[in-house]
C-alpha cells in the first residue's frame, strides 16, 4: 500500500475546523498530549508499516514527497 497524497478527505473544511476545535482551551502540554493520542489512534487504524514510514518521512520533510519537476 502507498500513502495517499491526492485529496481524500470527504469534508476537508469540517475536518480542519474539528481539528482546531480539538485544541481549544488546552495549554501547550495538553495539546502535545492530545496530538499524540490522535496520532496513535490514526496510526493503529492505518496499520501498514510502509504507509506509516512514508507519512513520518513527509511529516518531517514535506519537500521530499514533492513530484519531480517536469522536464521542459
Amino acid at each position: 500500500m502507498k500513502l495517499r497524497l491526492e485529496p481524500n478527505l470527504d469534508a476537508p473544511d469540517d475536518f480542519y475546523q474539528a481539528l482546531v476545535d480539538l485544541h481549544r482551551d488546552l495549554d501547550a502540554a495538553q495539546t502535545l498530549l492530545v496530538n499524540a493520542r490522535l496520532i496513535l489512534l490514526l496510526a493503529n487504524h492505518i496499520g501498514d508499516g510502509g504507509v506509516l514510514r512514508e507519512a513520518l518521512r513527509l511529516a518531517r520533510d514535506p519537500a521530499a514527497g514533492a513530484p519531480a519537476p517536469a522536464r521542459s
Binding site: 502540554a29 502535545l32 498530549l33 496530538n35 499524540a36 493520542r37 496520532i39 496513535l40
Partner: peptide, 14 residues
C-alpha cells in the same frame, strides 16, 4: 524529550 514524554503518556492513557 517533551515530545517523547507526550507520546509515552498518550500511549499509557490509551
Amino acid at each position: 524529550s517533551d515530545a517523547s514524554r507526550a507520546l509515552r503518556d498518550a500511549t499509557l492513557q490509551l
